[in-house]
Simulated assay, not measured.
Amino acid sequence: MRLPVELNLSGYTDLPPGKIATIVTYLEMRQAPALPPATTPDGLSLQRLTSDRDRYRALFRGIGEPWLWFSRVTISDAELAAILDDPKVEAYALNDGTADIGLLELDFRVAGEVELGFLGLVPGTIGRGAGRFLMNEAIRRAFAKPVSRFFVHTCTLDHPAALDFYRRSGFTPYKRAIEVDDDPRLMGAVPREAAPQVPVLG
Rank of each mutant, 00 (worst) to 15 (best):
G117N: 11
L94G: 07
Y92W: 14
D86R: 11
L94N: 08
F118Q: 06
I83W: 04
V114M: 04
E115H: 11
D96I: 10
D100G: 09
E105C: 03
L94Q: 07
I101S: 07
N95I: 05
D86Q: 09
R109P: 05
G102F: 06
N95C: 11
D100P: 04
P87Q: 09
N95F: 08
P87W: 03
A81I: 12
N95Y: 11
D107F: 01
L80E: 08
L103P: 03
F118Y: 15
N95M: 08
V89S: 02
D107I: 00
D85G: 05
E113K: 14
D86G: 06
A82N: 10
E105L: 09
K88P: 03
L103F: 02
A81F: 13
A82Y: 07
A82M: 07
F118L: 12
G97T: 10
D100M: 10
V110F: 12
A111Y: 13
V110Y: 07
D96A: 13
T98G: 14
L80F: 04
L80A: 09
R109L: 05
L94T: 05
D96W: 12
A82S: 15
D85W: 02
Y92M: 02
A81E: 15
E113P: 12
P87E: 01
E115D: 14
G117F: 03
K88G: 11
L104D: 02
L104G: 00
K88E: 13
G102H: 07
L94S: 08
L84Y: 06
G102A: 09
A81D: 15
R109M: 08
A91Y: 03
E115G: 05
D100H: 13
D86H: 12
E105Y: 02
D85Q: 10
G117A: 14
I101L: 12
L84K: 11
F108E: 11
L104H: 01
A81C: 13
F108C: 11
V89Q: 00
A81R: 14
L106Y: 00
L103K: 03
T98R: 15
G112H: 14
F108H: 13
P87R: 08
D107G: 03
L94C: 09
D96M: 14
L94R: 09
P87C: 08
L104Y: 03
L116Y: 01
V114D: 01
